[in-house]
Write a protein that binds this DNA or RNA. Sequence first.
DNA 1: GGAAATCGTTCGCCAATGTCAAACATCGTT
DNA 2: AACGATGTTTGACATTGGCGAACGATTTCC
Lengths: 254, 254
Amino acid sequence: MSGPIQSIERAAAILRLLSGRSRRLGVVEMAGQLGLPKGTVHGILRTLQSVGFVEQDRDSGKYQLGAALLHIGSSYLDANELRTRALNWADALATQSGESVRIGTLHEKQVLIVHHVFRPDDSRQALEVGSLVPVHASALGKALLAHHRYLLADLGSGPLPSYTPATITDVKRLGHELEEISGRGWASEVGDLFPGVASIAAPIEDRRGVIAGAISISGPIERLCESTVPRGELVGYVMETARTVSRELGAIPW
Amino acid sequence: MSGPIQSIERAAAILRLLSGRSRRLGVVEMAGQLGLPKGTVHGILRTLQSVGFVEQDRDSGKYQLGAALLHIGSSYLDANELRTRALNWADALATQSGESVRIGTLHEKQVLIVHHVFRPDDSRQALEVGSLVPVHASALGKALLAHHRYLLADLGSGPLPSYTPATITDVKRLGHELEEISGRGWASEVGDLFPGVASIAAPIEDRRGVIAGAISISGPIERLCESTVPRGELVGYVMETARTVSRELGAIPW
DNA sequence: GGAAATCGTTCGCCAATGTCAAACATCGTT
DNA sequence: AACGATGTTTGACATTGGCGAACGATTTCC
C-alpha cells in the first residue's frame, strides 16, 4: 500500500461537497459532481451516516452534515497552538483598540478564521470562527500572502473576484501591494470586502520562522483610518500584539 | 456490498480519538487504542492528512486534527435547521432575561451546544458552540432526557459522574426529576455543574413532534433563583421562547 | 557512550474489501 | 395509470487496502 486510501478520499470529497454552497444534496447529485456511480456514493454515505458525520433528512431523503463534525471541528481549536497561545492577547487587543479582533490561517487559498473576539462595547455580532474569507480582499489574507508569495501564482491569471468597488482584482497590483506589506510588516484593507469597513493585520511567526497566521482588527473606516490611511496608533497595537504572539510561539527567542 | 465501509469507519474512529482528551497522538498510540496494526493506522493517517483532516507536528511526529475540519464542522451549523430557526429568538431571550443563552441537541448521550449567545451586558465569555455537556448535570440535558427517557437506561447503573456537591449522581433520583420535568415542561439545574451558576431550560419540538433540542439561560444562582427555586418570570421567558421556536419549526400549526 | 527500545515510515504479498452496473422500491408527476 | 426521478439493494469481479515484517531515525536507559 503506498497511495492514499480511495474510499477515505471519496468520503472526504463528499463531506467537502456538503460543506459547500448547498447544505443539502441528494445521492445522484453528488454522484454527478464526483463522477462516481450512485451505488458507490450511497455506500459511502451510509457509512458516514453510521458514524454521525452525515445525517439524512427523513422527508426529502437528501443528506447533510452531521452533528459529530461540529464537535470534532471545534476540537480542532483546542489543538491549534496558534489560537490557544493568542487567546489572551487577542482579548487585550480588542480592549485596547475598541474593535473586533480576528485570527486567521491560510487554508486552501483562503483565510480560515480560527478566533474571533467581538467588539468590546456592544452590539450582537455573528461569530465567524470556521468561516473562510478571500485572501486578496482581507487584511489578514494580504498579511499572509505577503509571506507566502508563491500562492499568488495559484490565484489564477484572470481578474480576482470583486466584492466592492474597492476590491483589488488585478493580480499584478496585488503583487505590488504585497511587496509593500512584507516590507513594512503590516497589511490593511479599506472597504475591499464590505463597504465602509476597514481592517489592519499583521503576520504571526512560527517557532520555525514561518508565518503561521495573522491577527487583525476590523471596524468602520472612520474609526480605523485617517481619511483612507490606517491610524498609526492602531497599526502599532496590531503589530505589537502580533510580535507578542510570535514570541509566545517561540519565534523570537530574545 | 452491504455493511459499512471499513476504512471509513476506521478513519472516523481515528478522528474521534483525536478530538478526545489528548489533542495529539502518535501512530502506535492510536493503533493500540483501536487494536489495529500500526501500518494500517499510518495509511489511514496519510490519507486523512492529504485531505487536510489531520495535521502532523513536524517536530514530534504526532498527529492532530486538521484545519479543514473546522470549516466543515462550522458548516454544519448552517445546515442545522434548529439553530438557524432559533437564532433570532435566542438573541431576544438573552436581551429579555439578561443572561447567556444556549441551544443544545442530544449527541452521543451528551448535549451538543449548537448555539450560544453571550450575556448582553458585559464580560468576555468563552464560546461553547461545539462543546459537549453532561446530560444529567445540565438543564438542557434534563429537558432533553425527559422526552427521551429511554436514554436513561444507557447511562449505566453505577453512580453518575459528579461535578459539584449538588450534582445528581443517582440514576433513580434523576428519573424522578425527569418525571416532574416532562410534566411541567421545563428543567433546571442549580449549581449541579458549576458552583454558583444555575440554568433553566425548555424543550423544543420538531415538525414531527419529536423533541429536537432545548434552549436554556444560565447565570449566577442569585439572579436566576428565589433562594433555590428558579424565578417564575424567567421560567416563563424560556418556555415561551421554546414554544415560539417549536412553532417556527412547524411543530405547532395553530 | 553504546545498546536497546520506541517511534514513524515503507514494502510486497494475499485475499478480503469495496467498487460497479444493473435491478428494485418508492415516491411524485404527467 | 404509466412514467420518470429518486434512494436503495444486490451479487460478481478484481481492484484495493490490510497485514506483518523490515527499515531508519530518535530517544531512553543502563
